[in-house]
């Protein structure tokens, strides 16, 4: 094996080793409040199963905070790399539908030709009344 050196293509560009780099240089941030966590559970209809779930969010936010190190003055946000292309327009013809059977086949519960949901859109109970991990917080 030849001696491994950086070679002339890659001048000495030293980067700190992995562990330090990924920790934010910003001051430690506030913990996310229980209200916000509860709000998220409602909006996403996904719950934080345990403290690990909450930790995961905390870490994700901390990780994302690194974005603030970048100077983006005067930079326009980019929705998509196709922002300079224009939207394809379809003719107003009826080309789909009439497949009730196929659609209902994949539904676990149905009534005649309807999809069926439990009654109304009763919102999830308040934090105190719900069986959520956050209750202990």
């Amino acid at each position: 094996m030849r001696a491994l050196s950086l070679g002339r293509w890659l001048r000495a560009w030293r980067v700190p080793p992995l562990p330090e780099r990924w920790h934010s240089t910003l001051p430690p941030q506030q913990k996310v409040s229980v209200e916000v966590l509860d709000h998220l559970e409602h909006l996403a209809l996904v719950d934080f199963r345990d403290s690990e779930g909450v930790e995961r969010l905390q870490k994700a936010i901390q990780f994302a905070d690194q974005l603030h190190e970048v100077n983006t003055d005067g930079v326009e946000p980019m929705d998509s790399v196709l922002e300079d292309r224009c939207l394809y327009l379809r003719e107003d013809d009826v080309t789909e539908g009439n497949c009730t059977k196929e659609l209902l086949e994949n539904a676990r519960e149905k009534v005649e030709e309807y999809f069926v949901a439990p009654p109304g859109n009763i919102p999830l109970p308040k934090l105190e009344e719900r069986d959520s991990f956050l209750q202990g917080s």
Partner: peptide, 10 residues
């Protein structure tokens, strides 16, 4: 008829 004017996207 219910769900007869529905495409996969809908």
């Amino acid at each position: 008829p219910p769900n007869s004017l529905v495409s996969f996207f809908d």
